[in-house]
Design a protein around this nucleic acid. Structure first.
Lengths: 249, 249
DNA sequence: CGGAAAGTTGAGTGGGATCAAGCCGCGTGG
DNA sequence: CCACGCGGCTTGATCCCACTCAACTTTCCG
């Protein structure tokens, strides 16, 4: 009954590197829990560019974590207009908006080769009753998505939204160990335009102006952030909670 | 040890009518659970028009259910622009967007006299580990808010957004036992305009046109929906999941 | 009452959409 | 090798929806 120090199996090690596990049990995963999760988390085969991870209306089963690649979520209204809802990178969780209706309210499509690991939501729910850290993690993830979606719905100018997008991408790249100042976009201009609620033409002109103003340097899908400070200043109009707090004090 | 049939205390009866409880345990609340919740759920004193339930940056403690009245949530960017995020009515839950950061990302202000009942989130979390129905309810509520915020962020025309707002209000009134075709707005034109990402002047003109077209009849804050069908058709452009499903089939 | 805030109306402007070409990279096939 | 077509992207011209500014009216409250 004492703590066992047996080496974890290959699959267990895989799970330990899986964000769903490592984020929830930072450095403190017990062997018992690990083995339990090992049998439950499924590591999916690669999904190739243009293939769907799920589609609007699909029954909801799994919450997934992206291990590799980029995913775009979007919805289509009945007039055929496509609205990009988000871009998701390794470590991001997919599917949380489907819990309530038990159907996915949007499409998720691979922008490049994507691998995920996933866990049936029912399992996650019942596990989280026994694992407070997992439960807390799920609540926080859900809550964060609310705050994010809310932010996105704000009525800022095209400039502000684009600046926020660029800074957001830079930060997310940095959080994943890449350069914050230079990277490759995985999504098309049209996707970005739709995400920012702009016509593709408008985005093109905006990017051109940003480039002329020395804020960014663009070469196709390669982005170099040159005016981080200024971009941040433009984007921060969105919601700088720290500042709000200071001013309220 | 057998099932007790003792009459519940006054406070327990109060709790049974509280949405946080009745929604989670529809007709099947055990006496033990009831008494337990009784001591945990706090019924707050009335909050009067213009007073805050919480403010942007406040530390997060409670999830609250509105028992009576209407609440507006909004955020303010550093240029002083106010963005209305939502209107919340009896039965709605407040505070879920604050879980992640442990601070409220927005303000919540009473539009009329508001009473709530509330539960420390920590308590709700630990209770939900033992009460699967409560946990499921919380997950669904969080998920629903993601889907709702996402919807709001879509780039529809002013007409579509206004129609969606009117239909949404009608449905929510109906769900609470009021008339779906005639009711009283509790929020100002400015609040609605901000919510719909419109200038107050634009909203005024839109309402005028809707009235001229026989879609609604307005008298100050009194609204009568006359063209439910047409409004619904305009609003449905947003996201008619059922239709998407039919078309995908 | 009177003052302030909310709401409406009008005139003019502008940001972003739309329409229409054109450009460019790329895969395909002759 | 080029011709071709296609989709992604850009550029230009024009349009229109919603914003802004300003004046006025109404409502609310002290």
């Amino acid at each position: 009954m004492g703590t066992s120090f047996g080496a974890p199996s290959a699959r267990c090690r895989e799970c330990q590197s899986c964000p769903l596990v490592s984020d929830c049990f930072p450095g403190s995963l017990e062997a018992g829990n690990l083995h339990e999760l090992d049998g439950l988390i499924e590591h999916t085969a690669p999904v190739h560019t243009g293939s769907f991870l799920f589609r609007q209306g699909d029954p909801f089963q799994y919450i997934s974590v992206i291990r590799l690649g980029t995913v775009k979520t979007y919805s289509i209204d009945r007039e055929g207009r496509e609205q990009t809802l988000g871009f998701h990178m390794p470590g991001d969780i997919l599917g949380l908006s489907a819990i309530d209706e038990e159907r996915h309210p949007c499409n998720a499509i691979a922008l490049d080769t994507v691998t995920t690991c996933r866990l049936p939501f029912r399992v996650a729910a019942s596990l989280s009753a026994r694992m407070p850290q997992l439960q807390a993690k799920l609540f926080r993830l859900l809550s964060r998505d609310i705050a994010r979606a809310t932010q996105l719905s704000c009525n800022n100018s095209a400039d502000e939204r684009l600046a926020a997008f660029l800074i957001g991408m830079a930060d997310r790249m940095a959080a994943r160990g890449y350069s914050a100042s230079r990277w490759q976009l995985t999504m098309s201009r049209m996707d970005i335009a739709s995400y920012l609620r702009l016509a593709p033409e408008t985005l093109s002109r905006l990017l051109r102006r940003f480039q002329a103003e020395g804020l960014v340097a663009l070469d196709g899908r390669e982005v170099e952030v040159r005016g981080r400070e200024r971009l941040q200043a433009m984007a921060a109009a969105e919601a700088d909670l720290d500042q709000v707090r200071r001013e309220a004090a």
